[in-house]
């Protein structure tokens, strides 16, 4: 075959490849874990957006998913259980110039961090919140999480919790998240695109990633047979999105809601007075 030019690229070339965002520290997740894919989706999304690694901060709490920051070459913050959104909010509000992405799991994000989740949605700071949901606590050996099915048997809750499972997407929507999407770890490229879109969208973007736990929930390997692209495009009508989310079977993948609420960003760095000016207020 003779040399022919490569197809014309219609995408502007990124100066970065996904590999630029990987650190040399190797993941300790179980082989087969969906989080490997999500890590690669993070790095692919950063490459799509062509962000310099030092302009990105990846913030997390505790759990399998929260190990992500150290596996990237970005700035990382691996804090305490359930508080990643708070730390990320502080960072973003103090440093609006940074891209702040938060990694969490269903235990970290919906149980111990549930309150912060609600308020982060309602505050709508310009953060991207990626929750790797596998319906189980992995790091502590398989306890039920808020998204676990009520009859899932475990040592800590024999016979199941009997509790209705949490619907994070509907809650995010109701609490005011500006961008709501569901992704699937088995589709790292699609997930990367969703994460990139979430980062691009101003305000609080919530991406729930179905990320199978092959150790404690091996049946989640079947998820790949059930996921499908959302049959309808993203809506900007929250009521419509809520209705869809309340009635879908949990396997529709894609951006489900995209609003245009302006992000919360107090005017950091705008005031020009000095402490000496303030001092005059105390003078008698």
């Amino acid at each position: 075959m003779s040399a022919v030019p490569a197809p014309a690229a219609d995408a502007p070339k990124s100066a970065h490849t996904a590999a630029d965002y990987k650190s040399d520290y190797k993941p300790i997740w179980c082989p087969g874990c969906g989080d490997y894919s999500v890590l690669s989706s993070f790095t692919k999304a950063f490459a799509i957006l062509d962000l310099a690694p030092e302009r990105i901060a990846v913030v997390s709490g505790i759990g399998c998913s929260s190990r992500i920051p150290a596996y990237t070459s970005c700035y990382g913050f691996h804090g305490v259980h359930g508080r990643s959104l708070a730390a990320a909010t502080g960072l973003k509000l103090a440093r609006p110039d940074l891209t702040v992405v938060v990694a969490s799991g269903d235990g970290d994000g919906y149980s111990i961090g549930g309150n912060h989740f609600l308020h982060a949605c309602r505050r709508n700071a310009d953060l991207t919140y990626v929750v790797m949901d596998n319906h189980v606590y992995g790091m502590t050996k398989g306890q039920p999480s808020p998204t676990t099915e009520p009859d899932w048997d475990s040592k800590l809750s024999p016979g199941g919790t009997g509790l209705r499972s949490f619907n994070p997407l509907v809650i995010a929507l109701a609490a005011g998240a500006n961008f709501v999407a569901r992704a699937f770890a088995g589709d790292p490229n699609g997930t990367a695109e969703i994460i990139a879109e979430a980062i691009r969208t101003p305000g609080f973007s919530f991406v729930e990633v179905m990320s199978p736990c092959v150790t404690f929930r091996p049946e989640q390997r079947e998820w790949k047979h059930h996921v499908r692209p959302s049959p309808v495009p993203a809506t900007d009508d929250a009521a419509k999105a809520a209705r869809r989310l309340m009635t879908d079977d949990g396997f529709n993948i894609g951006v489900l809601y995209k609003g245009d609420r302006p992000p919360y960003q107090p005017p950091m760095g705008k005031g020009r007075k000095t402490p000496a000016d303030l001092e005059r207020g105390f003078a008698i």
Partner: peptide, 22 residues
């Protein structure tokens, strides 16, 4: 006419999901 829930769908998969080890 409701679609199967995620869990139900998993149950009706062609290959039964391996049971988590208890």
């Amino acid at each position: 006419t409701r679609k199967p829930t995620r869990k139900r769908a998993a149950k009706t998969a062609k290959r039964p999901a391996p049971k988590p080890v208890k």
